[in-house]
Structure formats: C-alpha cells, structure tokens
C-alpha cells in the first residue's frame, strides 16, 4: 500500500473543501474508518474550520461607510473633471488657435488702466490633478478683494473681464485663491452653486499667478459660470 498516515494528513484539509478526486476522497474516508488518529485529526480540523466560518463578520463602522462615500464622490468628480477638461481642451484648440508654446510659458500681463491687474489667462493647461486643500506655509499676502473675473461662456472660452463687469443673478460665481505657482489653493462659492464645470476648474486649472513687485504671489480671482446656456454669446 505505502500510504501511511502522513499521506492522509496532507489531504484532510483539501478533503474538507471537496478538492480531492472521488478516488482520493474515498481513500481518505476508508482510512479514517480504520485509523482513529486520523479521524480525530479530521474531526478537530473540521471543527476549527466550522468555528472560523461561524465567526461573526465584524460589521463595517458607519463612519467608515460615510468616509467611503465621500471618497467615492470625490474620486468621481475628479474623473468627470478630467474628462470634461480634455473635452474643453479639444474645444479650445478648435475655437482659438492656442499656441502650445504660449500655454506653457508664463504670460506677461497687460497692465491696462488698472483694470486687469493680474492675470488669469488660462495657461499651462497641464492636467496635473494637483489640488492642495490645505494652505501650508505660504500665507497669502495682502489681498482681500479679487483681482479680476474669468467668465465662461457656453462655448467654453474663458474671458477676462473687469471686476465691475455685470454678473447676472443666474450666474454661478466662485472665488478662487491662486497660489504663487498658479494653482487653486482654495475656493469659496460667492453666488449660486458649485457646478461640475466649477469643480473641474478648481481641480484642473493652472493660472498665471498674480505678481507682486515682480515676484509671483498669492492672489484671488472670480470665476463666473453662466447659470444657463447663452447661445447668443457664441461666435
């Protein structure tokens, strides 16, 4: 025969899971009929397994469930923002021939009668997805009021407008804090609500930072997103 207890010991566990062939299974059963040691081993293995299976599943804490939902919606917004961002990028390419070089280079800012003091051509459109919620060591310097307005029309071309430009009560207005690298460091909804477009701007846009004595510094800007489509603005 040559099949000692060791042979069967190796197979008891697989037998519990029904992983042996019919033939092997029968050999195991036959052996247990004549070998008390293996049968005892079998019984205790089976019991250990049964206890393990009966073990109550630790219920997921409700705080964690909430946390996961938040995570999911954040990740989803990010995904959507990235999708609409690339769509917008294609749009822009069609609408205005933006020179790639220009996109990547810091934009020299026109200082026109103090109207648009700093800013805000959408530049360096790199989908880096860097969004720093927390403002770290660099404290914002000297600003309380936004420095300009970026208005999105329905054809997706952002426009710079003076601060006193007309903002309709239907529009959604988001105030952005731009750090010295041109990234959005913080935002606040000033009017209306945060639309998916707004989210995508916050997450993905790169601005030309405001300048302060020739050095990039923190600044604020208003982004206006029309509350309803304005076909008339096309062209």
């Amino acid at each position: 025969m040559g099949m000692g207890c060791e042979y069967f010991e190796e197979r008891l566990s697989s037998h519990l899971d029904g992983m042996l062939s019919a033939r092997e299974g029968k050999d195991v059963m036959d052996h247990m009929d004549v070998c008390d040691a293996c049968e005892a081993r079998w019984v205790s293995l089976r019991d250990a397994r049964a206890q393990l299976r009966r073990l109550e599943r630790p219920l997921i804490p409700s705080v964690l469930v909430v946390q996961l939902r938040v995570l999911a919606s954040h990740e989803r917004a990010r995904r959507l923002a990235r999708a609409s961002f690339s769509a917008r990028l294609r749009n822009w390419k069609d609408a205005i021939r933006l020179n790639f070089e220009n996109l990547m280079r810091p934009v020299a800012l026109p200082i026109a009668g103090g109207v648009l003091s700093a800013l805000l051509l959408f530049s360096a459109l790199v989908p880096t997805l860097v969004f720093r919620h927390q403002i770290t060591n660099d404290p914002p310097i000297s600003f309380s009021a936004p420095e300009g307005i970026v208005r999105y029309w329905s054809n997706d071309i952002p426009r710079l407008e003076p601060l006193d430009a007309v903002v309709s009560s239907d529009d959604n207005v988001v105030e952005l804090t731009i750090d010295d690298e041109g990234r959005v460091a913080d935002y606040a909804v000033r009017q209306g609500q945060l639309t998916p477009d707004g989210v995508s701007i916050i997450l993905l846009s790169r601005f030309t930072p405001a300048m302060f004595f020739g050095k990039p510094t923190w600044g604020k800007t208003l982004v206006v997103l029309p509350g309803h489509p304005r076909r008339s603005a096309r062209g």
């Binding site: 599943r57 997921i60 996961l68 939902r69 919606s73 989803r76 959507l80």
Partner: peptide, 25 residues
C-alpha cells in the same frame, strides 16, 4: 465606473465594502 456613473460607484461600495473590511480586520 470609468465613465463616472454615480450608481456604479455606489454599487461597487455596496458590493465590496463589507467583505473588504472583514478581510482587512
């Protein structure tokens, strides 16, 4: 999920959050 469907995110969590938690514990 890839297209960003809200229900898909919910479904994924509904299906896996408990077993993943149990396994991790």
């Amino acid at each position: 999920l890839r297209s960003g469907s809200e229900t898909a995110y919910e479904q994924l969590l509904a299906r896996f959050q408990q077993p993943v938690y149990t396994l991790a514990v």
